[in-house]
């Protein structure tokens, strides 16, 4: 990796430069919250955002995604092409960059998912440093920093950006559109200072060291029953999660019933039908078992395959849960054997 420094005032030039050959998508305000949306004017970009309502996964694995068109009569696929135009996702926090890397393990390994891959391949990622908010606990998983998974990453040093350059494409675009300079010792010192200051800003540490073991050893913990009583089974946590990838598949026929589309839709393990099989057996028919499974899969199931937990501590589920069930609370209750 190599590094450059860019004056903060140059940022609009960089965005306009990217926009020449790419759709630029970045954080913009929606009331008092933020969403990733197409940027027409660099002034719309809100790089000071805390977190977005939905994570970037919506751009690679949309909430409703047509897989193919088909003809009923001979059960034939008419079209399964995926069209992905070049784009830049500008202003992604480290947690969300890390989340995409976790999604990659599912969608880009073994059976490669062509829909996700096409969109991933067509998208450049520009990371941006952030300041932790109350709900953030990315530091608990070591996902508070992104070391890869971006083309360039901008760390805000106040009057200038310290730019980490990861990809050839990122380097080229940076060179083409904006004036940067080599880093100096002073830049590096400021980078170190800013990074250290940020680390201090996180709320208390969340001890996750024994979590996988606890999940198994306390599989029957009453903590899950208590959470099950509170859980609304609404699935909001799964929808806003940057690493939840479960989906349902639905066929829809055209009004003439001759052709149709097969689509996938975000699904949630919190819904009662999620684990039911055709004969009526439901392997997770209690709310408690479903809340438990969400944690069990994220903190142990995925870990057992990919050596990382399937959580980046972005805090979206904590904000979205009307019942106020938060990972911080769940993890500590499980460790202590009850709620405070």
């Amino acid at each position: 990796m190599f590094f450059r420094v860019m004056e903060s005032s140059r940022l609009p030039d960089l965005v306009r430069g990217f926009a020449q050959d790419h759709e630029v998508i970045g954080p913009v305000a929606k009331d008092d919250r933020f969403v990733f949306a197409t940027i027409d004017d660099p002034a719309e970009l809100r790089l000071d955002y805390d977190t977005t309502l939905l994570p970037p996964k919506k751009l690679f694995f949309p909430a409703e995604d047509q897989l193919m068109r088909f003809r009923v009569a001979d059960n034939e696929v008419l079209d399964d092409e995926v069209f992905a135009a070049p784009r830049v996702l500008f202003g992604v926090h480290p947690c969300d960059i890390n989340a995409l890397l976790l999604m990659d393990n599912i969608f880009l390994k073994d059976y490669v998912d062509p829909y996700y891959k096409a969109r991933r391949d067509a998208t450049l990622i520009v990371g941006i440093s952030c300041v932790p908010s109350e709900e953030c606990f990315c530091n608990a998983w070591g996902t508070d920093e992104a070391h890869w998974g971006f083309d360039i990453f901008l760390t805000d040093l106040g009057d200038r950006y310290f730019i980490s350059v990861r990809s050839v494409k990122g380097a080229e675009l940076l060179d083409d559109f904006v004036e940067t300079r080599e880093i100096t010792d002073a830049d590096t010192a400021d980078f170190q200072r800013v990074t250290a200051e940020r680390k201090e800003m996180f709320a208390e540490d969340l001890d996750t060291s024994q979590l996988p073991l606890l999940l198994d050893a306390k599989f029957d913990s009453p903590v899950w029953d208590a959470l099950g009583e509170r859980c609304l089974s609404c699935g909001a946590c799964s929808m806003v999660c940057p690493t939840c990838y479960c989906f349902d598949v639905r066929d829809d026929l055209a009004p003439d019933q001759k052709t149709g589309t097969r689509s996938r839709l975000w699904d949630s393990c919190q819904f009662s039908e999620f684990s039911a099989v055709a004969h009526g057996q439901n392997f997770r028919d209690s709310r408690a078992s479903r809340v438990k499974y969400r944690y069990y899969h994220k903190q142990w199931g995925y870990l057992s395959k990919f050596e990382r937990v399937l959580c980046v501590g972005c805090g979206r589920c904590a904000r979205a849960c009307a019942a106020n069930i938060t990972p911080r609370e769940v993890v500590s209750a499980l460790a202590k054997g009850g709620f405070e």
């Binding site: 059976y111 998912d113 349902d248 392997f283």
Partner: peptide
């Protein structure tokens, strides 16, 4: 193919 999540059993 290990993506949709519906057949999870334990880990």
């Amino acid at each position: 193919i290990g993506k949709c999540g519906h057949c999870g059993v334990g880990h």
